[in-house]
């Protein structure tokens, strides 16, 4: 098969990028409705993915981005999310692929205004390492904090005909924070770097933080398992009011940022 020129343009563009920037944790967001399915076994499972036709466990580099499934109902899948924030040191070697954005959103054409119709997901595939994520951040954003908040102000010198990098640069200018005002609809905002694992990942002693709805702590099983899993930081949020996806996502962004600040990450 003849190799398409687009196939490695994006990853080649990042080859010489600075990877010596501080590392961000990996974040997995679960639907709070099924929290116990994760806490009890102490494992996040790789589940069948229609886009890649295999079992995949998704995480995002640094961002608590959870509008990822794009299965037609963000309201359902996102409600009362729980965030698991992973230290990268003991899981990074198990990363199987890295993409600069939410592949689910790409698959569902949410990025059509940024990329050419003929662009394929695989055109954006990056080497399976944390360094790939760091290269994306250092290339398209002024800092980790800017990546976290979105709305990049960095001027990037993009070679002519590198449409993938050009499109991604545009995408990086959109705000990540779902509460922020933007010309894009919420599903277009996901410039979060996506990291894939092809196997289950254990939680015990790997968690930098865990964020969950406060009332979940009334469940004895949640408390017991949280104690066993021993995340470094536990944070909760109210469940009573502000149930819009944007409000809850905004809350989650704020809480995760607090964790990063407490740990001196951003």
């Amino acid at each position: 098969m003849v190799k398409r020129s687009a196939e490695s343009r994006f990853s080649d563009f990042l080859l010489h990028a600075n990877e010596k920037i501080p590392e961000l944790p990996l974040v997995h967001i679960s639907d709070g409705y099924h929290l116990l399915d994760i806490l009890q076994p102490g494992v996040i499972r790789a589940t069948p993915c229609k886009v890649f036709d295999r079992d995949i466990l998704y995480m995002f580099y640094g961002k608590p981005a959870y509008r990822t499934k794009h299965n037609g109902n963000a309201f359902l899948s996102c409600h009362l999310p729980c965030a698991f924030i992973f230290k990268t040191d003991n899981i990074s070697e198990r990363i199987k692929s890295v993409f600069p954005f939410d592949t689910g959103a790409f698959h569902n054409n949410f990025y059509k205004s940024f990329f050419h119709n003929s662009s394929l997901i695989t055109d954006f595939l990056l080497p399976p390492s944390i360094e790939s994520a760091k290269r994306v951040v250092s290339t398209f954003y002024c800092s980790n904090h800017e990546y976290y908040c979105g709305s990049s102000r960095k001027n990037v010198d993009i070679p002519l005909l590198n449409f993938e990098a050009e499109g991604y640069h545009e995408l990086s200018r959109a705000p990540a924070h779902p509460d922020a005002n933007s010309k894009f609809s919420p599903d277009e905002r996901a410039s979060a770097i996506e990291v894939h694992f092809h196997e289950d990942v254990d939680l015990a002693d790997r968690l930098l933080g865990c964020v969950l709805p406060v009332t979940f702590l009334d469940d004895e099983t949640v408390k017991e398992n949280l104690d066993k899993l021993n995340p470094e930081i536990i944070k909760t949020y109210s469940t009573i009011n502000k149930h819009t996806s944007e409000a809850i996502a905004g809350k989650l962004y704020e809480i995760v940022e607090e964790i990063y600040k407490a740990k001196g990450i951003v």
């Binding site: 009334d218 109210s238 469940t239």
Partner: peptide
């Protein structure tokens, strides 16, 4: 108690 705390904050 966590539900009460949530209500108390609200």
């Amino acid at each position: 108690c966590f539900t009460i705390l949530d209500i108390a904050n609200f």
